[in-house]
Design a protein around this nucleic acid. Structure first.
Lengths: 202, 202
DNA sequence: GGAAGCTATGAATGATGGTTCACTTCTTTC
DNA sequence: GAAAGAAGTGAACCATCATTCATAGCTTCC
């Protein structure tokens, strides 16, 4: 025996991997999936193209990790807001607001997560995360119906509509980076959300 | 002078071109943009790969034409329904119903038009057509507001939300081809639409 | 110091798929 | 029927990247 990974070495490797993922995320946010070639990402991380394969078996695997991490953060935030105490309708409204603000804060990434053309593996992941968004929304809508504050409806469909609606509304401003109107956008989006779920017009 | 295209020949060429577009549309509807290679499309049309370039300068140009024709039909239908006489809200509801039924009727194509990953040129075209859907919806929402039947709102945003919502709701059933529940889906979708624009709960 | 075993490199490799082009086939005109 | 010119062919070409691999450089441990 003449070599064993020392803890420090292991940490170094993990850090390198994390750094790679972080840089890849930035590249994707800036230029989109299509332009984020292995060498572009490697360059951004300051390593050789071949070294990417020390950490990931394929480009697709790296892309999926990038997506999972970034999208996972959003799901988590959304979940926290939606599971906070309070009225379901109020929580929904807050969730949409938070989601929108975060997306507008980091437009490039939001676009990559929501809509940008991507390789099939990422596309599949996107479907999965949409399902999660939808479940979270659906839960809140169910609660609202259960407590009689929302009219009878198919919660799953409303939830799907809601996530589609939010995505579409955000994606367009996402393209054109002028947004002094963030506040108005957020206000309209939450208002639309409330109408969409059938909350009583204040 | 020893050769001039005879009218019949011109017609033959146009027909060949149309046939190519039609076959390409079918291929795209069946296997998606990514799998619709030039040779696959040429095979489907019964011509050689090289012959595609007699009619189009590039694959992208053909893809754009396929998209434009198919999406154009939908915009036209939507426009007709939305511009028909009657209450704006009623027209909106009818439009969503017609749109949904047509999409569910031809799922593959609808998915290709709405959501399937595509090359950048097609993506740009998709944005353009979304804008058109949105304008059509926005018009109806404006009218509804003008006649006092819909609450004050930003019609453009509502319209964007509406098209995003409809797309999202349709795309999932579009993936899984089991739909005995078309009727329920359509009913829920129109109900959601009415809530979304703020139509008075019947 | 040096052997063993790992990580890092980046040029070479390979697969994919759009595009070209020398050639064949068909149409027109005389 | 033959010349002129267009359309049609499909194998070869080429560009783009993801991936590999022989090599170099480090770390560990005795």
């Amino acid at each position: 025996m003449a070599y064993r990974k020392t803890p420090a070495e292991i940490r170094r490797l993990e850090a390198a991997r994390e750094r790679l993922v972080a840089c890849a995320t930035e590249v994707v946010a800036e230029v989109g999936w299509a332009q984020a070639s292995v060498s572009a990402v490697a360059d951004a991380a300051g390593i050789a193209a071949g070294s990417v394969y020390q950490h990931f078996p394929s480009k697709a695997a790296l892309a999926v990790e990038v997506f999972r991490l970034a999208a996972g953060r959003e799901v988590e935030v959304l979940g926290e807001v939606l599971h906070a105490p309070g009225e379901p309708v109020e929580r929904l409204s807050r969730a949409v607001e938070v989601f929108a603000r975060r997306a507008l804060e980091n437009r490039g990434l939001a676009y990559a997560l929501l809509a940008a053309p991507a390789e099939p593996a990422v596309g599949a992941e996107r479907l999965e995360f949409r399902r999660r968004y939808r479940s979270l929304f659906a839960e809140a809508v169910q609660e609202g119906m259960a407590s009689g504050r929302l009219p009878r409806q198919n919660g799953e469909i409303t939830a799907a509509a809601l996530s589609g609606a939010i995505g579409e509304v955000l994606v367009d401003p996402l393209g054109a980076p002028e947004s002094s109107a963030v506040e108005e956008l957020v206000a309209e989006l939450t208002a639309m959300t409330l109408r969409c779920v059938g909350a009583p017009h204040n």
